[in-house]
Design a protein around this nucleic acid. Structure first.
Lengths: 104, 104
DNA sequence: TCCTATACCTCGCCAAGCGAGGTATAGTCT
DNA sequence: AGACTATACCTCGCTTGGCGAGGTATAGGA
């Protein structure tokens, strides 16, 4: 219905390349704790997005640790636009329902 | 993650008693088409909500057809408050992610 | 040595979403 | 009479998604 994890991951990566752990941290900070993706959600999501050709994986060695940076592909960018529009719709729709004084 | 169907159903019923078919129609109208619950979502949701004691079912015969009106219970009202707050949180969180100019 | 932080991963469960199909009545149109 | 539309309910079964719990490994500080 909402596809929030996919949406927010794509949105962050539209800014710049990031690796999984970083995405998780950033999400928490930017959303002020309102949005937290557990690793059991995040990593499978990243793999799925890569498989579907929306992300490119760029593994790098940094300070002895492996980081897999992800970069948005053009398809990913289009997908993001679609999902963002959907979210906007949904969000406004729910907003209208929540805000009904009364109807019909 | 979002629990949108449950939220909007409870919200509508907080206004007044309604029956399933009516809920579906109203949802569509009020949300201006942004939000549509198929019957495969709506009816199971209503049954679940009733089982969990958040709704009371009130079957009535109207013009030769059976309508099952639903009324919010006090527990349903509390649940609605909780879900609405959650939604608010989520919605704002996603909003912040979508609106990032840049961070960190 | 041990703990914490960083950084990745998968398995398996449960819940949710949702299309497709089914039943039945009332009213309208041909 | 027959066909079609709108109303009104229902369930089955598939697929997706979310998510906790667990596992591996390195670096650095106590």
């Amino acid at each position: 219905m909402s596809g929030v994890p996919e949406l927010v991951v794509l949105r962050l990566l539209a800014q710049r390349e990031m690796y999984g752990y970083e995405i998780a941290r950033t999400l928490k900070v930017v959303s002020q704790g309102a949005l937290t993706l557990g690793e059991g959600v995040l990593y499978p999501a990243l793999h799925a997005l890569e498989t579907r050709g929306l992300l490119r994986a760029l593994p790098r060695q940094v300070e002895g640790r492996t980081r897999i940076y992800y970069r948005l592909t053009p398809r990913g960018r289009r997908r993001l636009a679609r999902l963002a529009a959907n979210w906007q719709q949904l969000s406004e729709g729910v907003g209208r329902i929540l805000g009904v004084a009364d109807h019909d």
